[in-house]
Design a protein around this nucleic acid. Structure first.
Ligand SMILES: [Mg+2]
Ligand SMILES: [Mg+2]
Lengths: 514, 514
DNA sequence: AGTCTGTTTATAAACAGAAAC
DNA sequence: GCGTTTCTGTTTATAAACAGA
């Protein structure tokens, strides 16, 4: 809940399929629509993990949520989902999760009205029983996938072009299509769209080179080799997007080869965070490991050195009522290019030279008060209701931010209608919020078993309060620790909170890669 | 042909209608298409102005073209079109035009096969005879409008909110719709989309304020007041685009009011060129003036002072064969923030304070050799021909740059089929190139009368070579001079070419406003 | 003549924080 | 004061136009 939100590693705003089948406008409903999909604007439910595992807010810590893990549930899967969820929701969202094992009396709380055994979820496979052996691989995925889930489907061979250094050329590796039925033993890479932005993938590509320079074609090839989605299913416009990103972002600089014949792309060294797919991959591979008390961190040895201590420290904790900073971010980081710590690049096997680079993204303007800042979602599905406001003679949209029509239920594999009595309570298991889907509203309902985000103590969730004292696991997505095991990123500087600028967490380190 | 190209003032890449009627996908032709519109991939023609007035390349000066003005033609209209054309095509395109009066023997050359009297052009009105009195106002316009043409339709009252300074609020001025039939006397503003980019319009808006700060809402209002298109016909998504531009471009900075309550947008003073709509308007108003030997420049008094002389002057003229600079622009202007002259803001009636600002856009890396760099256009209509290349199993597009299907003829009012014998020679009068229309190809055809861009001397265009010596007008769109009249922007520093960085022309000054 | 590469602009969209209602 | 809605601001994605190599 501190420091300015880094961009999540897990992609948002990337719903668009980008498949070869064009939008098809099948459900265009051009003028007569806007009444469809029957989303009944319910007060929404408490958040649930897939298969009805509930998540409750902690009564006192706003950044903490409590999860009761059923006995039948797959712990690794849940940890993965929670990690993704925590990272995704940024700083204001929950980033600590207390995992409690269910004490058998599961029929007690009706909070989610969906049991683990529930197999009638209409939106895709249910697949949580570990005996199914496709615990992760069969989770219904789409573009709004978390990267951990996605990585569970990635083949490790997708990383091998790293190891076969320099010989990535034209051999048709990785061309083995998986036939959509992917049992756990097979290790083909998915054709699912990876959850990384173009900018992130370009960084992955360029940073995989020791000289940290790549031609455009090599970037294409690298991405196609490591993310077969782009070779196989994406429309060719993805290359246009790559070029667009290279040109648009100042982070990417085009340089000339010494002979001046070819040009190659580099990353501005002063802002290169040196993230590689390997690092991201290792993070999540470890996440899926055996012991739950395993570090979620990459195996790299990062060193944060407080060089160029910011001179404007007074802006870091603004007076809580003056100026209010009104942070929509980014404008507060003007001229923050110099005064950030130098972050040494990890010298893993892919790098020869430890290029010195300093971080230059955010000035880490943390808001003073983190007082119960419940996350707001704009639950209004969309206001393409015609003539809703008689402002103009426009017969078209009235909102200045375009919005997609709410998708139909079957298009959202995370939306599972529970078997409970109230058919209106559609649970949103998606880690991605869609405006129009059932979202969590901050409305407080202290009285019922309904799916509110009521503080924890109000809900009769457990058969006895003893369970709250169960020494469960604590998953902290802010520093990617599970239980009390801290990540093994060794910060050479202060690591207490709210003390210094060197207090950069892994999630921030990862998150700034958009 | 010198200095790096500024972005044209006249908008390109803005074909999209952005009207309330959605794309309608009526002619989607999803899979069976791509054969339509009957564009026969002809070798294309030499460039012509509307009504068949030909433009020929000058035999020796690659940036110069020669235009023979028929007696019946409207000179002002032609000058306007040429000015737009010159500004639009950037540095590599022609920016000087020698205007010659036709010597009566018009039937001589068959080069354009369209006479001025031709009235059978199927795409809109022909409207060049000044006796029609709607010389400019009736030119068929669409989104690919030049700004000069567009300004011909603009009401002068659209500028009056400047004069009624500060009281722009809610009075329903400018709400007088024009009923599409706009005789010359009436002065309603058009509902046509203005040819300015969002970035340009935002600058117009903010620079119209003395304090050079505007809230978002004020920017909206300013644009709506001055360009009623956005109030009346544009989809509400245009406000999204405004916000997008404000956020995206570093040029726009959000600041807080002194009380910290509201935020307003400013333009980074070190790169603010202080262009206002008033200036653009005056430029074009003068262009439409009576005498052809009139200055095309704004009435402002700009002063360029060579402060911070660049230290890396050796990069300004690279060795002509080494490195070759391979300018796709923009990457050559890294770190050029400091070393450019300070450009004083013009203190016209809209400014109180002469904010000091220096230019910081382009480092003016001029290509060494401007040897017959004929402009290329990618005339390939689009290659959504399925299975054209058996590269992948993609059934969809194969080009990584998406392209629109070629529009039908009737949608392009500039495309006029001449009455000549060859029905295939569709002339493109549009100042905007569409990749599918007939474009000028650099193919050299020295032998025929065909529509090639053959050097000037090869074409038997004139009845006698005397006409080449006719003391015609010279329209130079690089510095916006007609005849020998220079623009009245007074540069205090060097104004000879290739000498100093202060050699900034009006077109560059204007052009950098995208 | 066509393709690849690079730059810009436009538009839609997701979403978050702040302000208004 | 709270809850909702709207406004404002930031990013990402995608299409597209077009220029230069
Ligand atoms: Mg770049
Ligand atoms: Mg900005």
């Amino acid at each position: 809940m501190r420091r300015s939100p880094r961009r999540p590693l897990i992609l948002k705003r990337r719903k668009l399929p980008f498949l070869q089948n064009e939008p098809t406008q099948a459900d265009k409903q051009t003028q007569h629509g806007a009444a469809g999909t029957g989303e009944p604007t319910k007060p929404a439910a408490s958040q649930c993990l897939p298969h009805g595992i509930p998540i409750m807010n902690h009564p006192s810590m706003s950044d903490t949520q409590v999860v009761v893990i059923p006995k039948e549930a797959d712990l690794q899967s849940i940890i993965g989902v929670l990690t993704a969820k925590g990272k995704e929701s940024g700083v204001q969202g929950p980033n600590k999760f207390i995992l409690l094992s269910e004490s058998g009396s599961r029929g007690n709380g009706s909070f989610c009205q969906a049991t683990v055994k529930e197999e009638s979820s209409p939106a895709g496979s249910t697949a949580t029983q570990p005996v199914k052996s496709d615990t992760i691989h069969n989770i219904p995925l789409d573009d709004s996938l978390t990267n951990i889930q996605w990585l569970g489907k990635m083949n490790t061979s997708a990383l091998e072009p790293h190891l076969a250094n320099q010989t990535i050329d034209k051999e048709k590796k990785l061309q083995t299509h998986n036939t959509n039925s992917n049992p756990e033993g097979s290790h083909q890479p998915t054709l699912q769209r990876p959850p990384y932005s173009y900018t992130a993938m370009i960084q992955f590509a360029i940073n995989s080179r020791k000289n940290r320079g790549m031609t455009l074609k090599e970037i294409y090839t690298w991405i196609e080799d490591h993310f077969p989605y782009y070779r196989e299913v994406a429309k060719p416009g993805w290359k246009n997007s790559i070029r667009h990103n290279l040109s648009l972002h100042d982070m990417f600089i085009r340089e000339r080869s010494p002979d001046g014949k070819t040009s190659f792309w580099t990353i501005r060294p002063d802002i290169n965070r040196c993230l590689t797919l390997d690092q991201v991959y290792r993070v999540s591979i470890v996440t899926e490991g055996d012991s739950p008390a395993v570090a979620l961190a990459p195996q790299v040895d990062l060193k944060v050195e407080p060089v160029n201590v910011p001179t404007k420290r007074e802006t870091r904790k603004p007076p809580p009522k003056r100026q209010s900073s009104s942070s929509r971010r980014k404008q507060s980081l003007v001229n923050s290019l110099q005064d950030e710590p130098i972050l040494l690049c990890p010298d893993n096997s892919f790098f020869d030279s430890g290029v010195v680079s300093d971080a230059s993204t955010s000035q880490d303007v943390r808001e003073a008060d983190s007082t119960e800042q419940q996350q707001h979602f704009q639950g209004s599905p969309e206001r393409e209701l015609y003539f809703k406001t008689p402002i103009k003679s426009h017969s078209h949209l009235s909102s200045s931010t375009p919005s997609k029509p709410p998708p139909s239920i079957t298009l959202e594999p995370w939306k599972v209608t529970p078997v409970g009595k109230d058919s209106q309570s559609v649970l949103d298991f998606s880690p991605i919020r869609t405006p129009g889907g059932p979202v969590v509203t901050p409305r407080q309902e202290y009285t019922t078993f309904s799916f509110s985000s009521t503080p924890f103590k109000e809900l009769p969730l457990f058969s006895s309060p003893r369970e709250l004292l169960t020494p469960g696991l604590i998953l902290d997505t802010m520093n990617d620790s599970l239980s009390k095991i801290l990540v093994d990123i060794s910060f050479s500087a202060l690591d207490d909170e709210d003390l210094g600028i060197a207090n950069i967490s892994l999630s921030e380190f990862l998150g700034q890669f958009m």
